[in-house]
Simulated scan of single mutants.
Amino acid sequence: MMENRLSEGSEGTCIISQEVLVSIAGTAASEIDGVASLANRTDFKRLMDKKHSARSVRIERENEGIVIDVFVNLKSTARIPETAGRVQQNVKSCVESMTGRPVNRVNVHVMDICFQDPAAVQP
Results as ranks from 00 to 15, higher is better:
residue 119 A to E: 15
residue 53 S to N: 14
residue 85 G to A: 12
residue 81 P to L: 06
residue 33 D to G: 09
residue 4 N to I: 12
residue 50 K to C: 09
residue 30 S to P: 00
residue 114 C to Y: 05
residue 32 I to W: 01
residue 29 A to G: 07
residue 123 P to M: 05
residue 67 V to L: 08
residue 79 R to M: 07
residue 72 V to A: 03
residue 87 V to K: 05
residue 9 G to L: 04
residue 54 A to T: 08
residue 68 I to H: 01
residue 53 S to G: 15
residue 119 A to F: 11
residue 90 N to L: 04
residue 74 L to D: 07
residue 99 T to Y: 05
residue 18 Q to P: 03
residue 37 S to I: 02
residue 86 R to H: 09
residue 40 N to A: 15
residue 32 I to R: 04
residue 123 P to Q: 09
residue 116 Q to P: 03
residue 11 E to Y: 04
residue 98 M to S: 11
residue 68 I to G: 00
residue 21 L to R: 00
residue 46 R to K: 14
residue 73 N to D: 09
residue 71 F to S: 00
residue 67 V to G: 01
residue 89 Q to M: 10
residue 38 L to G: 05
residue 47 L to N: 13
residue 40 N to R: 15
residue 37 S to V: 06
residue 41 R to D: 08
residue 92 K to L: 08
residue 5 R to E: 13
residue 98 M to G: 07
residue 53 S to A: 14
residue 5 R to N: 09
residue 66 I to V: 14
residue 64 E to I: 09
residue 89 Q to N: 10
residue 56 S to R: 05
residue 59 I to P: 06
residue 27 T to H: 05
residue 8 E to K: 09
residue 123 P to G: 11
residue 66 I to P: 00
residue 61 R to T: 05
residue 48 M to A: 12
residue 20 V to C: 09
residue 100 G to K: 14
residue 50 K to Q: 12
residue 19 E to H: 08
residue 86 R to S: 10
residue 20 V to H: 02
residue 39 A to E: 04
residue 4 N to H: 12
residue 89 Q to K: 15
residue 111 M to G: 04
residue 73 N to S: 02
residue 73 N to M: 06
residue 120 A to P: 06
residue 30 S to E: 13
residue 113 I to L: 15
residue 37 S to D: 12
residue 55 R to N: 13
residue 16 I to F: 07
residue 73 N to A: 05
residue 92 K to E: 09
residue 4 N to Q: 09
residue 66 I to N: 02
residue 55 R to W: 10
residue 52 H to Q: 10
residue 29 A to E: 00
residue 95 V to F: 06
residue 12 G to N: 09
residue 40 N to T: 08
residue 6 L to N: 07
residue 25 A to E: 04
residue 81 P to R: 13
residue 121 V to K: 15
residue 18 Q to I: 01
residue 1 M to V: 13
residue 9 G to M: 03
residue 78 A to T: 10
residue 2 M to Y: 08
residue 110 V to K: 00
residue 118 P to N: 10
residue 3 E to Y: 13
residue 33 D to V: 14
residue 69 D to W: 01
residue 92 K to P: 07
residue 8 E to C: 02
residue 38 L to F: 00
residue 86 R to Q: 12
residue 11 E to F: 11
residue 91 V to F: 06
residue 59 I to S: 05
residue 67 V to N: 15
residue 37 S to L: 01
residue 113 I to S: 03
residue 90 N to I: 00
residue 103 V to N: 02
residue 46 R to V: 05
residue 2 M to E: 10
residue 103 V to A: 06
residue 73 N to H: 06
residue 100 G to I: 08
residue 121 V to I: 15
residue 9 G to I: 07
residue 112 D to W: 03
residue 29 A to D: 06
residue 44 F to S: 03
residue 90 N to D: 06
residue 87 V to N: 00
residue 104 N to G: 01
residue 94 C to K: 10
residue 72 V to Y: 02
residue 97 S to F: 08
residue 83 T to V: 11
residue 16 I to S: 11
residue 43 D to R: 07
residue 35 V to Y: 01
residue 9 G to A: 06
residue 117 D to E: 14
residue 33 D to H: 12
residue 106 V to L: 01
residue 87 V to A: 05
residue 30 S to A: 15
residue 24 I to M: 04
residue 77 T to V: 14
residue 42 T to W: 10
residue 111 M to K: 05
residue 19 E to F: 00
residue 117 D to A: 12
residue 86 R to T: 03
